[in-house]
Write a protein that binds this DNA or RNA. Structure first.
Lengths: 342, 342
DNA sequence: ATGGATATTCAAAGCGCTTTGGGTGTCAGC
DNA sequence: GCTGACACCCAAAGCGCTTTGAATATCCAT
């Protein structure tokens, strides 16, 4: 069923039917009603491609996921992010198109997305410190919002980020206040902006209390469970083991906990752990009592908010860049306690 | 840059340029070369909407994710599935369009996807036992592949599934062979087809050995970490606790492990655990030594395979439905051991 | 030279929609 | 009765591509 058929069925012109469906004022209420009825009954909905071609709008948002070469995996927070953004999109009639792009093909991918014109805007995931995608998208004149920030990019752009610095500073200070002096940092890949900021905050919180950061206590890699396990296992075997771990994701923290248990220690008593918690739907940090002391920031609401920002940019051409910094809560769980001399 | 501009630039007709770019034989090698050069230099790529409108093909695949009303979450295996499928799609020049759809809006959503025509085929995720989407899509004449199966649907359709029955039967028998008699099943939601099959297999494996399944040892819910934790905690407090757990996902199994530790027990010695393992990139089951004894089946390769099947269906109209059953490996880890009388 | 393949190119129609730039009919005001 | 304003509706152009049906150029055998 297409517009032509529908309009013939109604004995109206395509113009009138189109206008009736799109809420234009110059069509009488009576005919509009008639058109809407018929459209519903005949299950008509306009062809997205034709509509897009005619209007120049795709009614779709692109999410470009950098795909990790090592693990061929998609960042597990993406599902929740899209669940949040999806709400907003659905409300406004936008679709989501995703492309998985390897690092080596990034630039080409963005250019071709641009010229294919299949999306009206883009959410940039996983920004690096000096992310070339940002100047590129600016140059291409395509609306975009970055989930995160790129510390080394100077030109203005829209972003939505968690206050990683403050979160990790507070977490570090919290551990210091508990008497911990040897605090390990199990971080994400440090060319990722969020991980860089977290490390900076951790290091400076230590330095401010007169403690030099010990490179032996700092690790950085993709945030898998196994990575957390290995780091913690190795460090706990050290003659001078850490008394606390600061971890960049729940999944990694679960690996850390596994290593702690395996070493015959008890988390929260013998060794403390603080993790960042993205508040993923399937991986809640306990229920009434949190498992981990954590810096919590919901990635689902970040998704919803980023989507709103992007839709705003799309609808208001020439709008100035939007930015938003979301604070993380420090949730006190049972994984932290006073430092113990061993 | 569009076709018209490009063809003017080259002093050729749009026809010739279009044909040159799309590899038609009736254009001389010399001009083809010239066209390709220019297209590259001027960074031309055809407008997807216009191309789609003209050809009737969208060059896009729809992934419809049922979104859980309770947790507003996207199934965590989705990321890996799409990572697998994405490889195949990218190779063949297809995009991925995803829609998040609530249960209540399923039918409407599929109809509108159909008539909007923004995708050429659909992957159906999370099939229920009597899934109405399957007859609907058949009726709409839209190519689709189901990730999983729907036991109660009789008409033929294409699917790709893990052999859940065999996997869970083997796992149950493995535990029985170790002397376990009180085996708990921590399952997914049992209106989901995979969960139903797993339960059937578990029950019949027990029955075959003369053991009646104990309803007190069977739970079913969304497969979160907290769910696993609660089930195990409650069951372990019971006067007649299970000596083994059969769990439907790694994440849930991690919750089970947490409850076991919290009860002061040791997994693999005091209590055994077998879990299904989707082999997610960020949640590998250990490295050299598996953490859990597990039935393993890679959801990433399922994605890749399902994508291939779907593309085949799209390209071969009238092709008979394709089906594929993937066997899960039984991986022996350190979470299982002989039953202990307590 | 000439007719017929063969190779190469092109103009124009069409995909399903929106939007421009009129039409027609009705009615109040003079 | 005539004009202008207003409400309502329509034919046709255009979005950027593919594809049909022809036209032109080239070449070989006659």
């Amino acid at each position: 069923m297409n517009l032509k058929q529908l309009s013939q069925h109604l004995n109206l012109s395509q113009t009138t039917v189109s206008r009736a469906l799109n809420g234009f004022p110059e069509v009488s209420e009576k005919t509009r009603e008639r058109v809407l009825q018929a459209a519903k009954k005949l299950n008509y909905s306009p062809n997205a491609r034709a509509k897009g071609l005619a209007t120049g709008r795709a009614q779709a948002i692109g999410h470009v996921l950098p795909i990790s070469d090592q693990h061929e995996m998609v960042n597990p927070i993406f599902g929740d992010f899209i669940a949040g953004a999806g709400q907003t999109y659905a409300k406004e009639g936008y679709e989501v198109v995703i492309s998985l792009v390897r690092d080596t093909e990034q630039e080409q991918a963005y250019r071709s997305i641009r010229s294919r014109g299949s999306v009206d805007g883009i959410i940039v995931h996983g920004p690096r410190m000096a992310d070339s995608r940002i100047p590129l998208l600016s140059e291409l004149g395509m609306p975009f919002v970055v989930h995160g920030r790129a510390s080394d990019v100077t030109l203005p752009y829209s972003w939505l980020d968690t206050n990683n610095s403050r979160a990790f500073r507070r977490a570090t200070e919290f551990l210091l206040d508990l008497g911990h002096r040897r605090i390990a940092l199990i971080n994400g890949l440090e060319f990722m902006d969020f991980a860089f900021r977290r490390r900076e905050a951790y290091v400076s919180a230590l330095t401010d209390r007169g403690i030099a950061a010990d490179p032996a206590l700092m690790r950085s890699d993709e945030m898998t469970e196994v990575f957390g396990y290995r780091c913690a296992r190795d460090m706990l075997r050290d003659p001078a083991p850490p008394t606390a771990f600061l971890v960049s994701s729940m999944i990694t923290a679960i690996g850390v906990r596994r290593a702690i248990h395996e070493a015959g220690l008890q988390m929260g008593r013998d060794v403390s752990v603080i993790t960042h918690d993205d508040d993923l739907g399937y991986l809640k940090n306990g229920h009434d009592v949190p498992i981990f002391t954590a810096t919590r920031s919901s990635v689902r609401s970040a998704g919803a908010r980023a989507a709103e920002m992007l839709l705003h940019l799309i609808r208001t051409p020439g709008a100035p860049p939007q930015t938003q910094l979301m604070e993380a809560e420090l949730i006190i769980g049972s994984s932290t306690g006073p430092a113990i001399q061993r």
